[in-house]
Amino acid sequence: MVQPQPAGELADTYPGEVRARLEQDLAFRIGGKVSKRLVEVGERVKKDQPLAELDPQDVQLQLEAQRAQVAAATANLQLVRSERDRYKTLFDRQMASRSQYDNAENLYRAGEARVKQAKAEFDVSSNQAGYSVLRATQSGVISRRLVEVGNVVSAGQTVFSVAADGEREVVISLPEHSIERFKIGQDVFVELWSRPDKRFPARIRELSPAADPQSRTYAARVSFTADKVPADLGQSARVFVPVAGEVPLAVPLSALSAEGGRPFVWVVDPQSSKLTRREVKVGPYGEDQVPVLEGLKASDWVVAAGVQVLREGQQVRPVDHANRSVKLAAQE
């Protein structure tokens, strides 16, 4: 007899890897030569902890040059201020023309602007001197390291990747031909390879809008909905996506044949014991059974073994696993 498919097996399975929900690529904001590397892959870091340093010589020289510019602009401002004050006194006493006073006033204003500009450039250089030290933006674990001491890096070039502490997720790839079955918020289950005896409830949190150009699969992120899931970074996992609709019937794998890519089973007539080939639509294969979505009824009898030597209309003598004759009866 055709058997109901076990509810726990009524799901498509996709392999995945445990990742941090928040993963950051860290890079220097300026270019330069890496002089120090302070952490290794797998090392836990805290927020604002130094991770690497650039050779500070160039930025320090630039900072000193800007400091000198500020000093020069300040000295010039003092000079033009005194000139303006002198011409103001002379103008009030009608000993200097209006144009001479206006020229001194304009020089003073230009001196003020030059001081502001020099101080702003000094602040930029000071910030860049601080940018020569790369710091962690949040606590987590170093998951990738892409430079060594002595490498010359450009601004924005990834140096480290940090998996932030907190929530863990499973990253999977979904097939292109059935992507319409999946949606954000869909309930799934996750089985960790370290805990094969337990499935954790989860849901699809993120679904890529475009397929990968090489694998033609869609990346998806699955987040756990249970608290305190023992998932570690890099762990292997399996994501079970329940099949929507009614629970299908199931037959042994040995009962299934195919021709031209179209699966079929041999159905036995209970009255005449003759065979009829019937095409079926099947679901994802299990370890020893395959669900039949269309083509069979619960009352049907199918041949479970030796299907490769059968033919249409052939009369058979049904037996069980102990080779004992079985009397078929039509089921209501």
Rank of each mutant, 00 (worst) to 15 (best):
S132A: 07
D48Y: 13
R93S: 05
G111V: 10
L275I: 08
A231Y: 11
I204V: 14
A68Q: 09
P291G: 01
S254L: 04
V309H: 12
A20Y: 12
A104N: 06
A110S: 15
G261H: 10
N103M: 12
G31E: 12
E191W: 00
L256M: 04
A163M: 10
Q308T: 15
E294H: 06
E279C: 02
G245V: 08
D269P: 07
G286Q: 06
E332A: 15
V292M: 08
S97R: 09
S236R: 14
Q315D: 00
K274A: 11
E17D: 09
A20F: 12
Q62V: 00
D320E: 07
G295V: 11
S126I: 00
S99A: 15
D123Q: 04
A330V: 04
V326D: 03
R81W: 05
D197R: 08
A210Q: 10
T13Y: 06
R44Y: 11
T74W: 00
V115T: 05
L10P: 04
A329T: 15
P209N: 04
G261T: 09
A330M: 06
A96C: 07
S35C: 00
V41I: 14
Q57E: 14
V34F: 02
R145F: 02
V159N: 06
V319S: 08
S194D: 08
D102C: 02
S125A: 15
Q49D: 05
N323Q: 14
V229W: 03
L256D: 14
N106M: 14
Q157S: 11
D55I: 01
G156I: 01
R144S: 10
A250P: 08
Q66E: 11
S132I: 08
A27N: 12
L38G: 05
L107K: 15
P196E: 09
F200L: 05
I204L: 13
S154C: 01
R262P: 03
E176R: 05
Y131G: 00
V280F: 00
A73R: 05
K281N: 09
D12K: 14
F182M: 05
E287S: 13
E43A: 13
N103P: 02
G313D: 13
P230C: 01
R19I: 11
E246V: 06
A237R: 09
S273D: 12
A304K: 05
L233N: 09
S143H: 00
E312V: 11
S254W: 00
L61A: 12
S272L: 10
V2K: 01
K36V: 04
A304S: 06
A164W: 08
D58H: 11
I184Y: 07
